[in-house]
Computed example of a mutant assay.
Amino acid sequence: MTTTPPSLNSPPAQGPTPLGQPETIKLILDRSRRSTRTVPIRRAFLQKEVGKGGTKSPGALTDLVRRSAKRPLDLYLLLSAVTSSGDFSVTEWSTTWARSVGIFDETAGTAAVSRAWKVLKELGLITRARGEGGKSTITKLHEDGSGRPYTAPGEGVGDPYFQLPFEYWDKGWYSILSLPGKAMLLIALSQRKLKFTLPQERMPKWYGISADSAGKGIRELMKHDILVHVDDEWFDTLKTRSGRGSRPVYSLWPPFTPRALGEPTADEETTTEVSSDTAPKE
Rank of each mutant, 00 (worst) to 15 (best):
Q21H: 08
L125E: 06
R34I: 07
S80Y: 03
D236A: 14
G124R: 12
R259N: 15
L75T: 05
T257I: 09
G145D: 06
W93G: 13
Y250M: 06
F196Q: 10
K26H: 13
K118L: 14
I218W: 00
G181M: 01
Q163T: 04
V274Y: 12
R67H: 14
D87F: 03
I41R: 01
S175N: 14
L194R: 15
K56P: 00
A60F: 02
S146F: 01
E132Y: 12
P254C: 13
R128T: 09
R244Q: 10
L141D: 04
K281T: 10
D231A: 11
T3D: 13
Y76I: 08
A152Y: 15
L64T: 02
V65G: 05
W97I: 12
A44Y: 04
D144I: 03
I209G: 15
G59H: 04
W93P: 00
Y207N: 14
D144R: 10
A266W: 02
T38K: 08
E201C: 14
P16C: 07
E49N: 08
T240K: 05
Y207W: 11
E268V: 07
F104Y: 00
H142G: 10
A211C: 12
A60G: 03
L198D: 10
A211H: 05
L77T: 10
D144F: 01
T36R: 03
L185P: 00
W97S: 14
T278L: 15
R148D: 06
S136C: 10
I103H: 03
D63P: 00
Q191D: 05
A108R: 06
D159H: 11
S100E: 01
L189C: 06
K121R: 10
T38G: 09
I41G: 09
P258S: 10
E143W: 08
T91L: 04
Q47K: 07
A44S: 12
G15T: 00
G217I: 11
P11D: 09
G109E: 03
R37T: 13
E132I: 06
T95W: 04
L179I: 04
S242C: 13
K193M: 09
T3P: 04
T36M: 07
D232W: 03
A214Q: 09
Y207I: 12
V50C: 08
S210Y: 01
S246V: 02
S210V: 08
K223Y: 09
R192T: 09
G262Q: 11
L261Y: 07
V113E: 12
A152L: 14
S251Q: 05
L186C: 11
W169L: 14
L185H: 00
S213M: 13
S146P: 00
S85V: 12
S275L: 15
T278K: 15
G134V: 14
E263A: 15
S114C: 11
T55K: 15
V249Y: 01
T4L: 05
S89Q: 14
L46S: 04
R202P: 01
G124N: 10
F45M: 09
R66S: 08
D63R: 12
E122I: 09
K223T: 09
L77G: 07
T62Q: 07
P11F: 02
G145Y: 03
